[in-house]
Each structure stands twice: as structure tokens, then as C-alpha cells.
Amino acid sequence: MNFAPLRRAGVYVFLSLAAFISVFPFYWMAVGSTNQSVDIVRGKLGFGGNLLVNFQHLMSQVDLYRVFGNSFLIAIISTVLTLAISSLAGYGFEMFRSRIRERIFELLLLLLSIPFAALMVPLFVMISRAQLTNTFTAVILPGIASIFMIFYFRQATKAFPRELRDAARVDGLKEWQIFLYVYMPTMRSTYAAATIIVFMNAWNNYLWPLIVLQTPDNKTITLVISTLTAAYTPDYGVILLTTVLATAPTLIIFFVLQRQFVQGMLGAVK
């Protein structure tokens, strides 16, 4: 008896089912954005004609341009600063070895597993004492120095040939010039992968903005979704339309840069 074809069929059924479950909510989200809330709650599976109405309802409740602008601004500034600070540190830890810095790095690795929940209370008190609540600075600043990203860049730097730095020194470059003109261009794909991850995390960030952003003016897209969802009678048509809008940027990045996306997710593990 040969069970191989049977087993092979089983694998396909298993994977197909899993793939269906993974993808179905995306379909649900797309369909929902075109339907009325009552239909969504009743589980309507086909596209409807309510997209424009949902959009108008959404626009009447929130300043969508402003919200998107806020989210983009926060995500872009966070990404640029996080990459700069973390890659400098990762490069520094790997290229310039000293016993003290090695100890500091080990300490950072220990801190890596401390959840944000343990930090949010004192951080909030700090931010409010500095009178920074309701500012983007408050959202961005605490997340810039990411231990995970420092670790990621240090690991990636291990693949950066030391002789390249030596060659640049012989060629007359200062250390910061080596970083700028040799390291950064050489590590483009590392930066690309990191950009995707940091941007996505900043774009999707919820808890910390929820704590420090309390005026409607500077709300981000994630805060809008949660406000809409928490309503006494949530309008699911509007909510699902908003989730489509919120997911679109990361979804586009994923499909355009799939390889770097996955590489970034794998991050420091290799």
C-alpha cells in the first residue's frame, strides 16, 4: 500500500483551508467597506453599493486628511530617526569593541524582553511633567532608540567586511564619512528591511498614542478605528472602510517589497 498520494492530498487540503482562513478577513474587510452596517452584522458576503455613503459618513465624523497626515508624519519621522540612531549604535557596538561597551550591550539584551506595559506609567508621568502631552514629540521620542533595531543592525554589521572600513581609512575618510559613504550604501538592503518594519510598527502603534494623544486634532488612524469601534452602536461599514484605508499602505509595501519585508521580520535572528 502506498499512502504517499493520500498524504500529499491531505497536505493540500490542510494548507488550502489555512490559506482560506488567513485571507478571508481581507475579503470580508473589502466587502464590508461597501455595505451597510446592518448587512455586515448579518454576515452579507457580497459587495454592496454603500461605499460612497460609508465614505461620507467617515468624512463627517473625522478629518480624514488630517488623521492620515498625522499617521504618516509620525511614522516617517519615527522611521528616519530610529534607523539613524539604531544603525549608528549597531555599527558602533560591532566595529569598535571595548569591554565596557560589550557589557552595556549585554545589559541591553536583558532589557529587550521588558514589555512596554511596564514602562508606560512612568513614561506618561515623565511626558506630562515635561508638558509634552498631545504632541508628536511625545509619541515619537520614547521609541526612537529601539534595542531590537540596535541588535538587528549589529547582527547585520557582522556581515560588513572590516577591511572595507580599513580601505576607507587608508583612502582618507573620517569615521563618520565611512559610515555615510561606505557603510550605509553597502547595507542598503538591511536598511530597506528595517525601514519596512519600523514604519509598519510606527504606523500601527496604538497603546502609546492612545495614552499621550488626547485631542481630536492629532489623532492617528489607529486611534480613529478604535474610537469608531468602541461606539455604543458601531457603524461597521465605516469601520471596515477605515481599516481598509489603514491597512492599504502596509499591504502595498508588502506586495511591492515582499522579500525585504520578510527579511526585516526575520530581523536579528540569523
Binding site: 488567513s22 471596515l240 508588502f254
Partner: peptide
Amino acid sequence: TALFLPCVTSLIAYSSLFKSM
């Protein structure tokens, strides 16, 4: 790609989806 796709969503967006479903 299909199995990885859920990772692309924000936690808030997908939880709203699940609430509606």
C-alpha cells in the same frame, strides 16, 4: 504569501474586523 498576509495588518484594524465577524 496567504499564510503570511495577516502579519501585515495593524492590531487595531484586524481586531475591529474580528469584532464585526
